[in-house]
Simulated assay, not measured.
Amino acid sequence: MLTVRDAMSHPAITVRPHLSVRAAAARLVTHGFTAAPVVTAEGVVVGIVTEADLLRGRIPAGAAAVDPTPDPPVSDVMTIGPIAVAPDDDMAAVAALLLDHGVRVVPVLDRGHLVGVVTARDVLRRVASRELVSAPRRPGTARAAGPNG
């Protein structure tokens, strides 16, 4: 069985809740990610922010440029309480989870601590190399991120 630990991207690129939308977008672009976990100074995952979250409402209809109004903080646009997985979870089940929930990135938590992320690209890389094939879903492989992970 291929596990999350075998395929995850790590270390995870993260952003803080108070970071501006523009700064978070620059961080994603710089590192080539489409989303990032949002973590507190203590390292607790409180959300996830995607490219779509960062773009939504920033380009007014008919405008030639990005909206010049002050940037909101990431906490205003992030998804709170993202789905998370554990390092020993089955990658086939996580692939199904990504598809079922329409998400491209999930944080990987080990005893409540962020240790990486699994992206759709991580799954695709394993499928392309024939390391990942369909398997039945195991119950309990997905859970909401929180202080106890």
Rank of each mutant, 00 (worst) to 15 (best):
S20D: 12
L28Q: 03
G102K: 01
V44C: 04
V105Y: 09
G102M: 00
T119F: 11
R104H: 15
A120P: 02
D89V: 04
G47H: 14
V85M: 03
P87V: 08
R126G: 01
A63G: 13
I80F: 15
R111G: 15
V29K: 06
S134Q: 05
V21H: 01
G62I: 08
D90W: 00
V105N: 09
A64K: 14
V21E: 03
E131Q: 11
A63K: 09
L54R: 03
V44N: 06
G57N: 04
P73L: 14
R126W: 08
D67W: 03
D76P: 00
H101A: 07
V85W: 05
D53F: 11
A41V: 14
V103N: 08
E42K: 14
A96L: 11
A25L: 10
I80M: 05
V123E: 05
G116T: 12
R22F: 01
L55M: 13
V105R: 13
M91L: 15
P87H: 03
A61V: 10
A35S: 14
H31T: 06
A36L: 04
A96D: 10
V46Q: 05
R137E: 07
A128Y: 02
P37C: 13
D90N: 10
A65K: 12
V115K: 06
V29L: 10
P37H: 06
M78D: 04
R125M: 08
D71I: 09
V118Q: 05
D53V: 14
A25Q: 06
P107K: 12
V85L: 03
V45C: 08
S75I: 11
V44A: 06
S134R: 05
A26E: 07
S134V: 02
D76R: 15
R126F: 08
E51K: 12
A95C: 13
I59Q: 04
R126K: 13
A63T: 10
V123G: 10
V94A: 11
D67M: 14
D122C: 04
G102Y: 00
A86P: 01
P70K: 11
V85E: 04
I80W: 14
V133Q: 08
A61F: 05
R56D: 02
L99I: 12
T40K: 08
A25V: 02
L55C: 00
V46T: 15
V117R: 09
A52Y: 08
G57Y: 06
V44Q: 11
I80C: 04
I59K: 06
V94Y: 07
L55H: 01
R27W: 00
M91T: 09
A95T: 09
I48L: 15
A61H: 08
R137H: 03
D122I: 01
A26G: 07
S129M: 07
L99M: 10
V29E: 02
R130Q: 13
V105C: 12
A84F: 01
V94N: 08
S20E: 02
H31M: 02
A63P: 10
A84L: 02
V44K: 03
